[in-house]
Simulated scan of single mutants.
Amino acid sequence: MTTTATRPRITVRRVVFTLVLLTVTTLLFWVPFEGLFAASAEWPDPVRPVAAVVFAAAAIAMIVLFTRRTSDRAARISQFLLGFVWIAFVWTLLTDLVRLGLALGGVENPLRSRVVAVLLAVVIVVITAYGVHEAMRVPRIKRQDVTIPRLDPAFDGLTVAVVTDTHYGAINRAKWSRGMVDALNGLNADVAVHVGDIADGTADQRLEQATPLGDVNTAHRFYITGNHEYYSNAQGWIDLMTRLGWKALHNEHVTLERGGARLVFAGIDDITADHSGEPGHAADLGRALAGAPQAPVVLLAHQPSEIKKAVAAGVDLQLSGHTHGGQIWPFHYLVRLQQPVVAGLSRHGDRTQLYTSRGSGFWGPPMRVFAPSEITLLTLKAR
């Protein structure tokens, strides 16, 4: 008996997505190609035709490799190409200002276009190298005091080390993970929290990179899921983090006590859990706070967009990640269209504050440009 492969169903949504993908990819590669190899530069033959072939091949390769989702090697190449071409696209547009200035200054072509092309090439290489260095380095420590008016003096000075968006993935960063944990342990924090997006891949795939998290030496360790866990068996990650000694706040809370005073740490599943198909997973703040004592609440919620629910529930401090601070400038302007805050401490309503971390790792392109990674040490202060 023979079987025939089922062809992918052609839908309007699929056609529109494909057209948008091709259009965006074409622009990303065409703009820097024209900046570097403009006809007005009159480069000797066959520079421009060869460059056109190279750019076209890179664009096709990026799309093809992105479709090979199970291959770490394909992911490494395609993600680097994406970051590289984004940097090239942005800085090509910026060097057009130099082109305009030279034109107004009377510099004629081909000299004008050649000066701009050389400058652009240097900038692209330098920014890319800087971005890779920033992404691959152990995160810097960022210290932030947070005054919580309802905090009992018994908890004044409590320190919370925040890591998030580690995104263990196609590039094996086991050594980086060890360095991050060593840096975190050097803070001697009272509480450590991981606010989601621990990895791209299953717990089994990324076990080597995640294992150092078991050596975090704080008295309390709390973890919640981010949206990326719901691409790769979130329950598997909860199970692994539990084995590594972290308390998964799966729509639940834990109450800390000091000298009769109380402080609640609560956590919710990421909002994408609702439609993930993962049994028993869905963001449920009501359930997370059910039975909590009348005490200040620190809520772990992966996405800053959950702040409205936190305000309505009377949460004192929400800790989030997800944004990466934009990761590669000026992408933070696009992030801001979806999230209320990109990074830092902000106030919402009369009681609630939100701290949004830029994240400790990176997603996709192994680059961070003007959005440095961080391990955050929050010091809670009573009024």
Rank of each mutant, 00 (worst) to 15 (best):
I238V: 11
A58S: 06
L36N: 02
L263I: 07
T70V: 02
N227M: 14
S373Y: 07
T356H: 05
G236N: 15
L111H: 10
T4S: 10
V15N: 08
H253P: 00
T25K: 03
A61F: 03
I271Y: 07
V193P: 12
A51P: 03
T23L: 15
Q338R: 10
Q205L: 09
P304C: 10
V298I: 09
G259R: 06
S78N: 06
A382R: 12
M367N: 08
V163Q: 07
E278N: 11
R336M: 09
R178W: 08
E208R: 12
N185Y: 03
T18C: 01
H281Q: 10
G236S: 15
S276Q: 08
D200L: 05
M62P: 04
A61G: 12
V24R: 14
V116G: 11
P8G: 14
M1G: 15
A283D: 02
E257A: 15
F155T: 01
R178L: 10
E108W: 05
K308H: 01
S276A: 10
V12Q: 12
D204H: 09
R347C: 01
H275P: 00
L207W: 14
V335K: 02
G157D: 07
D200G: 02
R137A: 12
L100D: 02
L81P: 09
A219H: 08
A248W: 02
N188G: 09
A174Y: 00
T225G: 15
I63A: 04
E278Q: 11
V138G: 13
G214K: 07
A382N: 12
L240E: 02
L81Q: 12
V191S: 11
R48S: 02
L111P: 00
V181K: 01
V122S: 06
L207A: 14
S305C: 03
G280V: 08
M241H: 06
T352G: 10
G325Q: 11
A129I: 13
T147V: 15
